[in-house]
Design a protein around this nucleic acid. Structure first.
Lengths: 220, 220, 220, 220
DNA sequence: TATGAATGAGTGTTCATTCAT
DNA sequence: AATGAATGAACACTCATTCAT
């Protein structure tokens, strides 16, 4: 972004290039999908020539990989945050995560990437695998563990903890996909934060063990 | 599918052809996405020549449209079932719908179509609109109405009924997308029926109005 | 055109078919040119199925040949008429031919065929040869001979009789081509008969030998 | 046209390319006609790849248009020359024009373009219109005016001046078309200059007002 | 004889990739 | 490092031709 003093201004900073390209590519891939995205378009949006792309990436697939890979990193924070917050009652964890995730999703261009991963999983199985192994399964696993632990503490009613994890995450994801898919053609959007907040409360209630036992722990 | 030995080079089955082509196209589009799908491939799977496609459809887009359109019809049953089951307590409705939807999703090739719609909504906005207006918004609307009515009867706690509807549907949808996206590259699948059943119970509990008060707040 | 009594009316008369097809083909070829003409179109205009064309002709080229060949025959009359009228002063011959040709050109679909021959001479050299040898060279030759004879009789000034023949014919031909080429897009047409009449008089004057000699023969 | 040994695979000559392509295209279109001309062929003759054509033209039609349009410009000189030579007796003008046109036609590739315009006027009406309005009608109009003026001066006998203009031009045009159509398959050619010279003299004589009367009838 | 569904080679067009500058 | 003209393989689409009926 900033140029060193004395540097000629038409000299572009090499170090930033790959990042700029990946940013541009993300936008184009998210809009059009992999096959319909044109390198010309990506190059133009990155402000470089088409040939320049090949100075940093070998093929279109490479760029796509870079985009998807790069999108994982920032999201890993979320996972870590979640895992870090592990101890304590589940309800606290859920509220915390909801707030965090709801916010992130409105900031980051996750939507586009999610769309891409869904769309191109068939054509790029390794990518699907990377996303699953490095991101999705981590999140799901962390939550599953937390839920199982809570079940152990009697905080959560019996049931498959992995499915409970899915139940918790799904509405956010669907609201996100909804935004990408239907809102551009006029559908009424969902307020991501509102969804997160309401759903957390629903789940906290829904997960409470049958009231016969002394379930005072969950709702403080 | 298989032809007897001595099979005729030309079959004369005009009436069946469009259906066969759409079936084949669904498989290819779902696998590869719109742009990456080759007409040659669709034709081969439909057991016809490339030229024959053009006897029934004008362009590749037309075929795509036909695939997506056709996928709406059978799913409309779900909506109708839901609307038909309208009266009675919400919990009964949810259990009924869950059973119905869970079963359908394992039978019909909805997954592929859902994937396609998500992936190509940007490139084919009218398709996204059709899907939204004719199918998704109908389901969501029907559920929203049922929930609002239940709230009126004091069966359901306060909260945005449209978000509640989203919360109810989302896990099934995500499990479906999961199957399309991650399972082929080795991820552990979700049992759609199990998800449906467990989530319904969670939601029934989660939606219950606070037991303590005389729930005067909900139905004023 | 007429059906035998007692013949079922949906039974088509086989004998006329080739002619009907050639008629239809002439119209289509004249409109679009050889390559841009579609057999579908020809078949439709001939009132038969596409497959039926192949009962009478082997290929598209064959049909084209038939069209061009068939167009020669009626025009041969003109040549014969001209040759028959041979004796007598040239001016009489010219006036007679002009009237005859002017009339024919407004009746027969010569224009289209001329256009086709010009356009496709490069792609079908034998056709160009047939047209040249059987028709055009005949007419030109007959006229050249008549002019040479008239020169021998002192009726016509010195000069290349073949070029004189060309001079005589050309305006009619150009008026014809003009009609096919520019009139459909709005150009002012030429009245073929008027062109014929005026040009004949011009040529009769123009061909007169220098007045020094006793040139009374031409203008009676 | 010919490249040195060691010729570079990529030449960098953006400025020259469109011209080279149009030249090559003219040859191919003139030979085959629009529909039968293959882009591969044009590209090969232009010494570029098929894809390169699309760097300079949007479609095959565009190339065709460029060819036809471009052919107008150089011919406009003829028109201007004719209009410039306006004053003076008509016979001088005719002799001058004949010389000029006869020479040009043997140099420029007019023949091919004329053929194309005749052949494709039906499929590309705007092109026919452009040719008519910008070129043909101009020439014809200029000549018509000159003749009418000459009639006013008593130099030319009564008669439709537009038809007289046609009579003057036609033999050159037909000789040109003859060259394109019949000569390649063995017909005896016409010497364009000879045709021009002889026809001018014929017309000068043919247009002379009747010598007997004091020609008061013509210019009242 | 006649049909028209079906074929498949052929062509215009696109676009990821290369390379002289 | 950067450009962008050039390439060529790939693909959607067309249409003359075939053949079961």
């Amino acid at each position: 972004m900033t140029l060193e003093p004395g540097e000629p201004k038409f000299r572009r900073r090499k170090a930033d290039r790959p990042g700029e390209i990946v940013d541009a590519a993300l936008r184009v891939f998210a809009e059009k999908g992999f096959a319909a995205a044109k390198l010309d378009d990506i190059a133009r949006r990155a402000g470089v020539s088409k040939g320049a792309l090949y100075l940093y990436f070998e093929t279109k697939e490479e760029i796509f990989r870079a985009v998807v890979d790069q999108a994982i990193a920032p999201n890993m924070q979320v996972v870590r945050a979640m895992v870090a917050a592990h101890p304590g009652p589940l309800s606290d964890l859920l509220r915390l995560v909801a707030e965090r995730v709801g916010g992130l999703m409105e900031t980051l261009p996750v939507g586009g990437v999610v769309k891409m991963v869904i769309a191109e999983a068939g054509n790029f199985p390794e990518l699907a695998r990377v996303w699953h192994d490095d991101l999705v399964a981590q999140i799901l696993g962390a939550m599953t563990d937390a839920i199982a632990a809570a079940q152990g503490r009697g905080e959560v009613r019996p049931g498959d903890p992995r499915i409970y994890a899915l139940e918790i995450i799904a509405p956010m994801l669907v609201a996100l996909i909804w935004r990408e898919t239907f809102v551009p053609s006029g559908a009424q959007p969902f307020d991501l934060r509102a969804v997160a907040r309401q759903h957390v409360e629903t789940m906290i209630e829904g997960l409470k063990p049958p009231k016969t036992s002394k379930d005072g722990e969950i709702a403080p």
